[in-house]
Amino acid sequence: MNHVTIVICNYNYEPYLAAAIDSALAQDYPKTDVIVIDDGSTDGSRAIIEKYGARVSPIFKENGGQVSAYNHAIEMLETEYAIFLDSDDILYPNAVSEVMQLFVDGDWAKVQFRLDVMDGTGALTGAYVPNTETRPDCGKLLLRGWLYPSPPASGNAYRVSALKQIFPVPAAGINRYGADFYAIYGAALTGPVASVSKSLGAYRVHNAASSSVSFANSEHITKAPRAFSMRWTILRTIAKSRLQVELPPTFHDFGHEKARFCSSVYRATLLTRWRWMMRDSSGYLHAIVANPFWSLQKKLGALVLSSLCLVPYSPLSDFVVRYIANPLARRRVAGR
């Protein structure tokens, strides 16, 4: 039986850390090891980790950011498979067993699975991510610049040998965070990706309000496009130097374009909304119309919804932006 390591990267998440560790230790797959990397927390995280004794392997390091923590973990990993669990998320008890069934049956570089969305208190919201499954050959689409639908960090299990072809990643300056970007998309350049079409864990959204335009935790909606562009440039350099793979200068991703769309038209005047749609929406519309992962029905639905942002009634326009940006807004409407 293959060994699997669950790596929990933590920085100042004392209120959630124990739940993450407990979920890792509760896996029904017997050959599961747990490593907890604390990235220089200044809260009570260290005391929580130490309470688990020999049940986990603790690593306490100076604060260097998420990329630094991933670099450190991947360098020292001895098992062939690993899951990187964010310290505010949890895994369900069968998560490792489910992904290992796929790894054993195929030569996958990565196995991804859905995550239920929970709010800051741990209550499930009824939403899940991602809403679209990827294709096994998503690496070929990456060569054309298409980022494939993936769950956040905690919803991915990797073949460690694939990660070691991508990491270490530069960890200085503004690239301290976003390590999961390099793991998610870098792994797909080394081999096929499998998807589990059911939830095997839960992803905590701290601003879990259906009335908000923001959904992701990691970056403000106006900063996300710039961060993604920088990471793509770094991934291109890594792919060329280590894998001899040439990625295009630009990429296509609805999540990235959605952030641009929302930051440009949300609560904007009618003139601003029309101006953006007429002059600056080409990337956004291309990410819908040419999206290789979406059905025709989904593409048409996104186009119709987006067009409603041009109506003179601003409350409707703002509602549509929230509906497009935030899965919780969609769940609320569906539940009415």
Score class of each variant (00 low, 15 high):
324 I>Y: 01
329 A>R: 09
82 A>G: 02
130 P>V: 01
48 I>V: 15
80 E>Q: 11
141 L>R: 05
217 N>M: 01
269 T>K: 08
121 T>E: 14
84 F>D: 02
176 R>H: 09
304 V>A: 14
239 A>D: 02
284 Y>K: 05
333 V>M: 14
44 G>W: 11
330 R>I: 07
284 Y>N: 05
76 M>Q: 15
323 Y>M: 14
322 R>L: 08
23 S>R: 05
321 V>K: 07
211 S>W: 00
329 A>G: 00
34 V>I: 15
39 D>C: 10
81 Y>I: 00
282 S>F: 13
217 N>P: 00
71 N>R: 11
315 P>S: 07
52 Y>C: 03
11 Y>V: 12
231 R>A: 02
263 S>T: 12
126 G>A: 03
289 V>W: 10
257 E>V: 10
82 A>E: 03
92 Y>D: 03
83 I>G: 05
327 P>F: 13
245 V>W: 00
83 I>W: 12
255 G>P: 02
185 Y>Q: 00
172 A>K: 06
295 S>C: 07
332 R>Y: 07
311 V>A: 08
258 K>D: 06
150 S>M: 09
144 R>F: 01
52 Y>F: 15
109 A>N: 05
238 I>Y: 02
173 G>N: 04
211 S>T: 15
67 V>K: 03
233 T>C: 12
83 I>T: 06
2 N>A: 14
183 A>P: 00
28 D>R: 04
288 I>H: 10
65 G>K: 11
32 T>Q: 12
27 Q>L: 06
310 L>N: 05
319 F>S: 02
23 S>F: 12
28 D>I: 14
134 T>G: 09
197 S>Q: 13
213 V>W: 00
231 R>Q: 12
179 A>L: 07
2 N>R: 11
67 V>C: 13
278 M>Q: 09
43 D>C: 06
94 N>T: 13
112 Q>V: 11
211 S>P: 03
49 I>W: 04
274 W>R: 14
311 V>Y: 03
190 T>R: 02
1 M>Q: 11
89 D>Y: 07
103 F>K: 08
260 R>D: 03
238 I>Q: 01
171 A>Q: 11
275 R>C: 07
123 A>Y: 12
218 S>L: 01
77 L>D: 04
27 Q>A: 06
253 D>Y: 13
258 K>H: 12
24 A>T: 06
322 R>C: 11
50 E>D: 15
137 D>M: 05
151 P>C: 10
111 V>H: 00
104 V>I: 13
38 D>L: 04
257 E>N: 12
270 L>F: 05
41 S>H: 12
44 G>T: 04
168 P>H: 05
130 P>L: 01
84 F>W: 10
60 F>T: 06
130 P>Q: 02
185 Y>S: 00
229 S>V: 13
25 L>Q: 09
149 P>Y: 01
262 C>T: 15
261 F>T: 03
71 N>S: 11
138 C>K: 02
43 D>S: 08
291 N>W: 08
110 K>A: 09
192 P>C: 02
198 K>N: 10
296 L>H: 12
288 I>Q: 11
68 S>K: 11
41 S>D: 13
244 Q>C: 11
47 A>Q: 15
193 V>L: 04
206 H>F: 15
36 V>Q: 05
10 N>H: 09
105 D>E: 15
169 V>I: 14
215 F>P: 00
328 L>M: 07
